[in-house]
Design a binder for these strands. Structure first.
Lengths: 353, 353
DNA sequence: ATGAAAGCGCTAACAG
DNA sequence: CTGTTAGCGCTTTCAT
């Protein structure tokens, strides 16, 4: 079913049909009605591809994600898709699983498809292809992971501040020797959290003898990146426990690591929230339901998703005049039992996220 | 940069360029080399839209998901995207958030874009538009939720069997009065789990006086479906505890519900795995790390994703001749401490999922 | 081996 | 108000 078919069936010209269906003026009321009726009858569906070709816009956004299984990103996918569609845009999704090659291929694919713009969580080994894509005229917004040196829009979390606040909270709770467990990816969120953590330590005058920032090795399994494995954090935590000088507070870069830490500690007969305080990142759905409930930094995922889309759309419409803007959205600490030495059980308020 | 530009710059015809770049025969070796070099130099990128328009295929698959935040679906997104891209297909993602209207709009969008085929987790209120889309010539594979009456391919989990096995396991563990907590969506997985649960009860000669299948109300929050809220299960579990006749085993339709159940029970001074056995569904990353570790049914997500893509591609290539096939993949019970009255702590084997 | 011409389905400029 | 013409970028006949 094409415009041509309708036109033929009605004995009018193709573009009268086009205009009638597009509700343009300069079409007789009766003709329009007849055309619409016929279109309905024949089950006409406009061909987006042809339309895009001539219009020069596919009304499509690209979304490049490293790992959809990460709850932060899965929520982002949902938000972005909905916000985009609300503005008339379809979504083309690309998954990179932390592979630099996939990241590069993603940039090419976006260029080929002529998306109107793209939201990108980059594999942060190299950002040149993203810069090039942007220079090719495809507006880009980096999500969550920034290349500070590149003049690309960015929307993400203020991890530095989040880590700082959380660490300070632990210190105020009495912690004197703290450590931070982070995934071993060279990405800006890790850097920022590390910086925030160190700042809090420095401000409190805590000077650990050894580097308090520990790296949890990232593994890969058949085309899947596994950066957030409780098992890996579990092993590292076991080592810490076995190693002798136990910290009295452990920060982790994501809530999944906290699961491993919980287990290692409890197996060693240590009580989380009493012997050792624990703080996480992400406020994943299970965090409030652990025993003890996990203190964690809540990330403004929805804001980030919708803001990113809005920034991108402004870029698409407005052109490329104004400077790149880097937005770091504030996050909020959800205090629960794992960081309150004095409190035994969590209150039910904590569960209503 | 278009073929035309390259052609002009080299003084050859457009379609010589086209064939040279497509590595077709009937192009002189020297010409081809010159053309390729020039294409490289000018940074030529083929326009997928124009290509699709003339070829009649966009090399694109549609993926319709109700809720990306559901770990089962987020993993599915990842698998499908990768498998699809490995076969040369791009992915267009649509999110419905359990909204029947969005579900309908998704079908239209797919038709407009002329995707080569689609994988669909349908909002199961009505499947007619999917049937129509399929009849319009867009091959379709239903994911996870089936319309048994419609002649559409389906790939999903054998929930009936999974629930049956899990329930039997609980009964063998000594349970005499069991209940099942399910989300209140009218979808085939819930039906199947319920059926499996009931079959296990019946076989064991257990005849509860009241209906043992309990429904956890699904809520919505600003364009987001929340079918799996620990808080909701928590409340329901509280009611059960308060209600008097406590079951000695609780099955839940997903692991998130188990979180709520754990809390309600422990707040009532009941010990999971001793006073009350608990079994879940999904084997979410946190399941093995709860205290006690959660016995749960592991779903073959990766198999389902890749199988679904393969079935779809066969459909796309093979045509629409053979009958619809419905594949229910077997799942596997991960037995852990929450269902072992005799075991106190979980062994570390359980954690290496 | 190469070029010219036609067309995918649609929209935008012009005429009339 | 409507029809004609042209063209988006590419591929596929068909000539040469």
């Amino acid at each position: 079913m094409t415009l041509k078919d309708i036109a033929a069936s009605l004995g009018v010209s193709v573009n009268t049909v086009s205009r009638a269906l597009a509700d343009k003026d300069s079409v007789g009321e009766d003709t329009r009605a007849r055309i619409k009726a016929e279109a309905q009858r024949l089950g006409y569906v406009p061909n987006s591809m042809a339309r895009s070709l001539v219009l020069g816009s596919a009304m499509t956004l690209g979304l490049v994600i490293t790992n959809p299984s990460n709850p932060f990103y899965s929520q982002l996918i949902s938000t972005v898709e909905q916000r985009g569609r609300a503005c008339g845009y379809s979504l083309m999704l690309l998954v990179t699983e932390e592979s630099p090659e996939a990241d590069q291929r993603a940039a090419e694919a976006l260029l080929r498809w002529g998306v109107d713009g793209a939201l990108v969580v980059p594999v942060q080994s190299d950002g040149q292809h993203w810069e090039r894509l942007n220079e090719s005229g495809v507006p880009l917004v980096l999500l969550n992971r920034d290349f500070p040196d590149l003049a690309l829009d960015f929307v993400g979390v203020d991890y530095e501040h989040g880590a700082y606040e959380a660490t300070r909270h632990l210190i105020e709770g009495g912690a004197k020797s703290l450590c931070l467990m982070e995934e071993d990816l060279p990405i800006s969120p890790v850097e920022q959290r590390t910086a925030g953590f160190r700042r809090a330590l420095a401000e409190a005058g805590i000077e650990p003898s050894r580097d308090p920032v520990l790296s949890v090795p990232t593994r890969r399994r058949e085309s899947q990146a596994l950066p957030w494995e409780p098992a890996d954090a579990y092993r590292l935590a076991q080592d810490i426990v076995a190693g002798g000088d136990l910290p009295d507070a452990i920060m982790v870069g994501n809530d999944y690591f906290a699961l491993g830490v919980y287990r290692a500690l409890s197996e060693a007969g240590l009580r989380v929230g009493e012997d050792v305080l624990v703080g996480g990142f992400g406020d994943h759905p299970f965090a409030a339901y652990l025993t003890p409930a996990l203190t964690t930094v809540r990330l403004p995922v929805a804001e980030i998703g919708t803001t990113a889309v809005d920034v991108l759309l402004k870029r698409i419409q407005g052109g490329t005049d104004h400077q790149a803007e880097k937005r770091h959205e504030r996050c909020e600490l959800a205090v629960r039992a794992s960081s309150r030495a004095t409190v035994r059980a969590s209150t039910s308020e904590d569960t209503t996220t």
